[in-house]
């Protein structure tokens, strides 16, 4: 019986399958399937923002650590603006900015829908938070490692690529794991901030609050959502832990610091 619901609503968040959402007599199965279907969006936003943000964050961290004020100042301002203001307001601002830009140039058409516009905001936001973490890692690279690199004749780009950057990543990784977890949590904000859920194709929290509103019973949909997110968090910790042990594979194995749930950094 639940199999049928899975076929009907499993990909509902992408607009595939049954169009009408259930309106009455909500079963537990429907709630589990639809909220799970919404998780597709949370994973989509989280994964793409994390990967693209990683690249920009590295550039920003290097810029922020630079001696050249022309590189340092813009990086510092970028990090300040995105870390100093609420993500909630950034989403609203981004959405209305893209709406206005759409009037000027039709190129911005896709940016006023969530799949593109919200992704851009999340990308910039996580880049700023990660940049601050990587900047800390960059500052903590042991002086001895850099001296040793110089002694081997490594300079400039080669020294950065082979010594500074891997060491920075290794040092920053536990905090970065934490950032990844809270980025996925932050993806639940998207459909509450102006970005429209076209044809009710929303994320997990969108469906959870839909059920809570319709049944007036928050004690079923929200624990389901919590279960999905705890699972997702465990997957992230597992994957990032894998990367962490690879980054630390040259070190004596007893001294490895495993990533764990560090103090909360919420936006």
């Amino acid at each position: 019986m639940c199999w049928e619901t899975l076929l009907d609503y499993g990909l509902r968040s992408l607009g595939i399958g049954e169009r009408l959402l259930p309106r009455a007599d909500f079963t537990l199965c429907q709630q589990v399937v639809l909220i799970g279907s919404g998780m597709i969006w949370n994973v989509y936003f989280g994964v793409l923002a994390l990967i693209s943000g990683f690249a920009l964050a590295t550039l920003l961290a290097v810029g922020k650590a630079s001696d050249n004020a022309l590189l340092r100042k813009p990086a510092e301002w970028f990090v300040f603006v995105f870390r100093g203001s609420p993500l909630f307001i950034q989403f609203f601002f981004g959405y209305f900015l893209f709406l206005s830009l759409k009037q000027v140039a039709p190129v911005f058409e896709p940016f006023s829908s969530a799949w593109m516009g919200a992704l851009v905001v999340l990308f910039l936001n996580t880049a700023a938070y990660s940049a601050e973490i990587f900047y800390g890692g960059l500052q903590a690279v042991p002086k001895g490692d850099l001296d040793a690199a110089s002694a081997y004749g490594l300079t400039g780009w080669r020294r950065f690529r082979r010594i500074t950057w891997p060491t920075m990543l290794r040092l920053a990784w536990p905090a970065y794991t934490n950032e990844a977890i809270f980025l996925f949590h932050a993806t639940t904000l998207v459909f509450f901030t102006g970005f429209p859920a076209r044809q009710q194709n929303g994320d997990a929290l969108y469906y959870a609050s839909y059920f809570a509103d319709k049944t007036f019973n928050p004690f079923v949909p929200y624990p389901i959502l919590a279960g999905y997110f705890i699972l997702l968090t465990l997957v992230i910790i597992g994957l990032m832990g894998h990367v962490n042990s690879r980054l630390n594979r040259h070190l004596p194995q007893t001294t490895i610091r495993r990533p764990r749930l560090l103090p909360q950094i919420m936006r």
């Binding site: 949590h185 932050a186 639940t188 904000l189 509450f192 929290l205 959870a208 609050s209 809570a212 007036f216 928050p218 004690f219 929200y222 959502l225 919590a226 997110f229 705890i230 968090t233 749930l261 909360q264 919420m266």
Partner: peptide
């Protein structure tokens, strides 16, 4: 542990109804 493991927004939406009820 629980409040930290789950998105805070979900908690806000949950508690407002749950407390009221």
């Amino acid at each position: 542990a629980i409040v930290r493991g789950v998105p805070d927004i979900a908690f806000f939406l949950f508690f407002v109804i749950a407390l009221d009820q």
